[in-house]
Amino acid sequence: MPSSISNLRALCAAIALLFVFANPAVAQLSFKPTAEAVQEDKLLNALKEGDKITGRITIPDAMASSLIQPAGRDWRDFHRSKLPIIGGVAIIGMLALLAIFLLVRGRIRIDHGFSGAKLLRFASFERFTHWLTASCFIVLALSGLNISFGRILILPLFGANAFATMSAYGKYAHDYLAFPFMLGLIIMFLIWIKDNIPGKLDLDWIKQGGGLLSKGQHPPAHRFNAGQKGIFWIVIIGGALMSVSGWFMLFPYIPANVTELQFWTVIHAVIAMLFIAAMLAHIYIGSVGMEGAFDAMGTGEVDLNWAKEHHSLWVEEEQAKGRAPSGSAARPVAAE
């Protein structure tokens, strides 16, 4: 039985061969290697933005199945031309604004001078949370800026080897400090959300420019004024975006593919630039920009006159609760 089948096959092949020799034109028509062949040009033209040409591979590395992803070049162009502009405008622009503000407005003084009386503004756990987030943020910002712009700004100064070593440590710091930073964000959100719900008072505060622009003007405010609420929400929303994009980047290719990672790195970089610019303003007003402001996070206790000028309603609330000295009498406050 098997032998008769093979005989039949041989016969068929012979007939086919005869047919081919007898009619070469038909033979050529029956074999068209390119009729349905894939063409690189067609595949490239059919690609949507961020798409890639993929195929089947024989190695268990799923990423290797991507043959060509032209989006990599767009990502390169973002890093080479767009990011320096975004970062430069945001950060240098903010520094310039702050310098102009300092020159024009000067340091915002306490109009009535220090009273000597103090009241507790931030408890030690609040200060701990602030400094936890702040110290992590500073390292994250510097190491992140180093990844983005260190090659242009620092590499020529340090030399290739020293810069690479520094960047490697920066990368580890960035990775590992991201976690205490995220913890700080969560605690901050929980302990300060109740004082940061936007209200009608904030509108008035904004209308008066927060009293920042003219001397002696102090719109009333509760524990946090509209500007501080703004900073709170910038930190929470910006921090959340940084964290989400950061999680994707921390575990590359585990949930995300290369196209998604390109997207998240762009989000991470752009939000970072805006975030850093906003924090520069925060650092300025909390230190050089305003007399008496640093005490709130430094010792936790602010001067009564400072509090009355900037957070009049909060002082009244604290006084009602008996947690603040009444009046502006220059007498030492009992420790809580």
Partner: peptide, 22 residues
Amino acid sequence: MKSFLAALAFAAIAAFCVSSVL
């Protein structure tokens, strides 16, 4: 100042723990 130093110490310890988990 105490809170600040405690925050720095906590950040460093947390980072170290995270590094070993990662």
